[in-house]
């Protein structure tokens, strides 16, 4: 417990503190794809220490997938993701971002949503919104205590703005947070939003969707030793010290393999830079997906993230199921 508080209050450091140890390089999907140090955190931090500007490092900033794998391994406790997002904010914004900002400004002027009837709320991501059947299944599974998805799409715009480095109008953000402050527990599907919510609402009980589902007894019963369980990297890395133990207990109890490397960092199944994530260019992450599967002796893949399900289905011959699909409609573990 003491250790937790010590970590919680250790000040985050900046690029000037990078010693160049390159531990973050080992877990960086951009480096795995490009083998180009200048596109990775130690590459551009070292370059920044020697006078390069945000514009000089634009390729690196844009190519980051924001998987956040680099943060837990950094011995200097550098706020790597925070620096990348700040640099994105400094780069010239394309025209479509102005539309997003205008929409958020317009939303800010609207009447605040009514108080939720439940003490817990689920914030789905874009992919879960696009799969209403699965979303309904998740709500049923976690809804014993009154969980329901947020009714408007504020969280989606905020997620998008965070990703792209678009400034969020303060009034819009406060309107969103006002709603969440009334809750006892918030379950978040988007790992980047989860990271920020933990900073914005430090007293709130906020967990990722993967952790919520994998803590459900029926879901856990559905796991077996021949599964490869693919942890969603962003949520995992945003609360690494706690979650590394959560998933280790899951491994001990159920014997399944995980997409964890030897540093216990989640290997992302996708590696999408900003334009690819925004749909402006085609993703090219099959190499990364194949690395997750390389040398595995498994019969099934279980995912927390729908984005990763899509790419794993494309690349592998194994059945790929979402965690929520491990439980049938009656609330019982599915037989494999």
């Amino acid at each position: 417990m003491l250790g937790y508080f010590k970590n919680a209050f250790t000040p985050r450091r900046d690029h000037a503190d990078c010693s160049g140890c390159s531990l973050c390089l080992l877990v960086c999907p951009v480096w795995r794809q490009s083998r180009d140090v200048s596109l990775t955190p130690p590459g551009h931090f070292k370059a920044m220490q020697h006078g390069t500007s945000a514009a000089d490092a634009a390729a690196s900033v844009e190519n980051c997938t924001l998987c956040m794998a680099c943060e837990p391994v950094c011995p200097e406790n550098i706020d790597i993701t925070g620096i990348i997002l700040e640099l994105r904010r400094q780069l010239a914004a394309p025209a479509w971002m102005h539309g997003l900002q205008a929409r958020m400004t317009e939303m800010a002027g609207r009447k605040a949503a009514s108080a939720p009837s439940s003490s817990t709320m689920l914030l789905p991501d874009q992919a879960l919104h696009a799969h209403p059947d699965l979303l309904a299944r998740v709500v049923r599974l976690l809804g014993n205590n009154g969980t329901f998805p947020v009714s408007d799409d504020s969280s989606l715009d905020i997620s998008l703005a965070l990703e792209a480095g678009v400034a969020i109008p303060e009034q819009h953000l406060q309107r969103f947070l006002k709603l969440l402050r009334r809750l006892k527990k918030i379950i978040v599907a988007d790992g980047l939003l989860l990271r920020h919510l933990k900073q914005w609402l430090p007293k709130a009980d906020i967990i990722g969707l993967g952790e919520a589902l994998s803590g459900h007894p029926a879901v856990r019963r559905g796991l077996c030793t021949t599964d490869l369980y693919v942890i969603e990297p962003r949520a995992y890395h945003s609360d690494y010290q706690r979650l590394v133990k959560h998933y280790d207990r899951l491994r001990v109890a159920h014997g399944c393999a995980f997409n964890l490397d030897l540093q216990r960092i989640a290997i992302p199944a996708t590696a999408r830079n900003l334009p690819q994530r925004l749909g402006l260019t085609m993703p090219n992450d099959e190499g990364q997906t194949r690395w997750v599967l390389h040398g595995r002796n498994i019969n099934r893949i279980v995912v927390e993230s729908l984005e990763e399900r899509a790419v794993l289905e494309k690349v592998s011959n194994f059945p790929v199921v979402h965690l929520a699909e491990l439980v049938d409609d009656g609330g019982h573990a599915q037989q494999t």
Binding site: S19, G20, C21, S38, K46, A47, Q49, G51, T52, A57
Partner: peptide
């Protein structure tokens, strides 16, 4: 400079 600066020093 971004490419060269990444290697300005060693451990």
């Amino acid at each position: 400079i971004a490419a060269r600066g990444a290697f300005a020093t060693d451990a």
